[in-house]
C-alpha cells in the first residue's frame, strides 16, 4: 500500500477537508478566510447591479420604468427558494450524520429566508397593483409563496418552543424536510396551473426571455443577494456557535 490510486487519494483528501470544515473550530478559521471575499463580491455585484438596473438598463416596452422593481423582486424570490433548499440539505445531513454545524446552518438560515420571502411578497404586491391591477390574488404562485413564509415562521416557532436543544434540532429538521414539498410547487406553479403570475423569465438551460442589456444587472443583483446571504449566515453561525459553546 505504498501507492494509492489518484482518485482514492483525492477522495480521502476531500473527506479530510469536509471533516475539518464541518467541525466548528475549523469552520471558524475557514469562514474567516472566506468572509472578505464574500464582502468584496457583494459590494462589487451590488454596485453594478443597482447602477445597471436602475439607470443603465433600458425601460421595458410594455411596463416602462416600472419594470425595474424586477431587480429587487426576482433576487428576493430566488433566495427565498434557495435558502430553503440549503436548509433542507442541511436538515438531511444533520439527521443522518448528527452534525452540529448542519443543524446550526439550518437554524440560522431560517430568519434570513423568512425575510427574503417577506420581501418577495411585498415587492411583488407593490409591482402587481400598477401592472396587473391588484395587490393580491389567490393564484397558485402567490399562495404557495405565502405558504413558504408561514413555513419559515413555523420552523422558527417550533425550534424556539422546544427547550431541549437536541430535540428542537431534530424536530425542526423533520419539519424543514416536510415543508420542502412546497419548493417545487412554487417553482412549477406557473406551469401546472392557470395563474395571473407570468412564467419564469430566467432559464437555466435555454436562453432567458429578457434582453441582454436588462439581464446582466439582474444576474449581478442575484449574485449580490447570494453573497449577502453567505455573509449574514457566517456571522450568525459564528455568533450562535460561540454562545452555544460558552453556555456549556
Amino acid at each position: 500500500m505504498f501507492k494509492k490510486p489518484l482518485l482514492q487519494k483525492m477522495l480521502s483528501q476531500t473527506q479530510v477537508f469536509l471533516t475539518r470544515v464541518m467541525s466548528p473550530p475549523y469552520f471558524f478559521s475557514f469562514a474567516e478566510k472566506c468572509l472578505p471575499w464574500f464582502v468584496a463580491v457583494f459590494v462589487a455585484a451590488l454596485a453594478y447591479g443597482l447602477i445597471g438596473g436602475l439607470f443603465l438598463a433600458p425601460a421595458d416596452y410594455l411596463q416602462g420604468e416600472g419594470f425595474r422593481i424586477l431587480y429587487v423582486h426576482v433576487p428576493c424570490a430566488f433566495l427565498s427558494l434557495m435558502i430553503y433548499s440549503v436548509m433542507a440539505v442541511a436538515a438531511a445531513f444533520g439527521l443522518i450524520w448528527r452534525l452540529k454545524l448542519a443543524f446550526a446552518v439550518m437554524r440560522q438560515s431560517a430568519p434570513l429566508g423568512m425575510v427574503f420571502t417577506f420581501l418577495a411578497l411585498v415587492t411583488g404586491s407593490l409591482w402587481g397593483k400598477p401592472m396587473w391591477g391588484t395587490y393580491w390574488i389567490w393564484d397558485a404562485r402567490l399562495t404557495s409563496e405565502l405558504i413558504l413564509l408561514f413555513l419559515y415562521l413555523g420552523i422558527l416557532a417550533l425550534h424556539s418552543a422546544l427547550p431541549n436543544r437536541r430535540l428542537a434540532d431534530h424536530a425542526t429538521a423533520i419539519l424543514v424536510l416536510i415543508g420542502f414539498v412546497d419548493i417545487p410547487i412554487i417553482h412549477y406553479s406557473v406551469n401546472w396551473w392557470n395563474t395571473l403570475h407570468q412564467g419564469s423569465t430566467l432559464r437555466l438551460l435555454a436562453p432567458s426571455l429578457i434582453a441582454p442589456s436588462m439581464l446582466y444587472p439582474l444576474l449581478a443583483m442575484t449574485v449580490a443577494f447570494c453573497a449577502y446571504y453567505a455573509i449574514a449566515l457566517i456571522l450568525r453561525l459564528r455568533c450562535a456557535l460561540l454562545s452555544e459553546s460558552g453556555a456549556r
Partner: peptide
C-alpha cells in the same frame, strides 16, 4: 386584471 408575459425587452427591440 391585466396579465403580462415573461418577456422583457426595450422598445426598440
Amino acid at each position: 386584471l391585466a396579465k403580462h408575459d415573461e418577456n422583457y425587452m426595450p422598445r426598440a427591440m
